[in-house]
């Protein structure tokens, strides 16, 4: 019986070494440790022994069984890690082949600059107002103090829309009609900006577009002065472009502001950018909107966005704003 016990570990070692897979090993385990296996067979014989022998041989059997168990476990680990290695090797991928199904997408340059400007102005305490692109004469011109004979109403500048009278409906020529809508819709104080698309009946070339974008800023409150206009523009330019940029206002003319000014920005290298126009809201404009100009005063400034949007990426030709070529658009 002792011999039989001694053979258990030999059989285990031989069987484990011969097993080429987990299934073979399972068969070896069953033959040695299973219900009908060798260990069980020896255990059944123990009942016929005296107590001392039973204890001695039982102990030897237990040790042998433990040894068998550890031999098989060691071999199982060997075999299963080999199997995992094989399976992992078969699953190898070349991860350099991977490309996304699509890229991160692209917002239009004008959208990017509008959103950035909106964020700057929201940070400065402004709300954002919007209005229609097709306007009536009153909002686009009359309420803005354009005289009946003002040249800007001319056929050369304005797209007239075939609605109403011959010159009654226009493609808005600026975002200023939104000022009128804001001032007629809500009482002061007003702190708003108006970004949007505008239209001019002009031949398109590298520096002119018939359809382009503007942003205006309007403040109407008690005690607003030209000093606030200059200070607000300065704060905006510092926030948008950087503290190293400075501004200059010089006298100009717009029907809807007085005093009016051109807004120039000086770059850190000393060169000037003619950004846009500004001024104190003309008292006639306030009156036209039902706001008492003796109590309330305000300022407005505005500028074109397309050039700013393109300049960021060094695009010189304004016509690229309208480009639908994906090779252009996908760069931004």
């Amino acid at each position: 019986m002792i011999d039989e016990i001694a053979r258990l570990t030999e059989d285990a070692e031989r069987g484990a070494a011969a097993a080429s897979g987990l299934d073979d090993l399972q068969a070896v385990e069953t033959s040695l440790l299973g219900k009908k296996g060798a260990v069980s067979g020896i255990k059944r014989q123990l009942g016929g022994l005296d107590e001392d022998d039973r204890k001695r041989i039982g102990r030897a059997l237990h040790e042998a069984q433990q040894q068998v168990q550890s031999i098989l476990t060691a071999r199982r680990d060997e075999l299963s890690s080999a199997a995992r290695r094989e399976s992992l090797a078969s699953e190898r991928m070349d991860l350099t082949e991977v490309r996304p199904g699509h890229d991160a997408g692209h917002l239009h340059l004008v959208t990017q600059v509008i959103e950035e400007l909106e964020d700057v102005f929201v940070g400065l305490g402004f709300t954002v107002a919007e209005g229609p692109e097709v306007e009536d004469d009153w909002h686009n011109f009359t309420a803005l103090n354009f005289g009946e004979h003002h040249p800007a109403r001319d056929m050369q500048d304005t797209f007239f829309v075939a609605l109403g009278g011959p010159r009654e409906v226009v493609m808005r020529t600026h975002t200023s009609p939104v000022q009128i809508r804001v001032m007629t819709d809500q009482p002061p104080p007003i702190y708003s900006i108006m970004p949007g698309r505008v239209f001019r009946n002009e031949a398109t070339d590298s520096t002119h577009l018939a359809v382009f974008h503007q942003l205006e800023c309007l403040v109407v409150d008690e005690g607003i002065t030209f000093g606030h206009l200059a200070g607000t523009i300065e704060a905006f330019i510092h926030a948008f472009m950087g503290e190293e940029y400075s501004i200059r206002l010089r006298p100009s003319y717009f029907p809807f502001t007085e005093p009016s000014a051109e807004l120039d920005v000086q770059r850190p290298d000393g060169s000037w950018l003619e950004l846009g126009g500004c001024g104190m809201v003309h008292p006639n404009v306030l009156s036209n909107c039902g706001i008492d100009p003796e109590r309330w005063s305000g300022f407005a400034f505005g500028f074109g966005l397309d050039r700013l949007a393109l300049a960021r990426y060094g695009v010189a030709d304004l016509r690229e704003v309208m480009s639908t070529d994906i090779r252009f658009l996908s760069q931004f």
Binding site: L124, V128, P189, T225, G227, A230, E234, R250, A261
Partner: peptide
């Protein structure tokens, strides 16, 4: 002279936001 007019910050308390 426009450049001789002192530049001032807006002081009214207000909240900027998108709709």
């Amino acid at each position: 002279g426009y450049d001789r007019i002192e530049r001032r910050a807006l002081t009214k308390e207000r909240t900027g936001r998108l709709t």
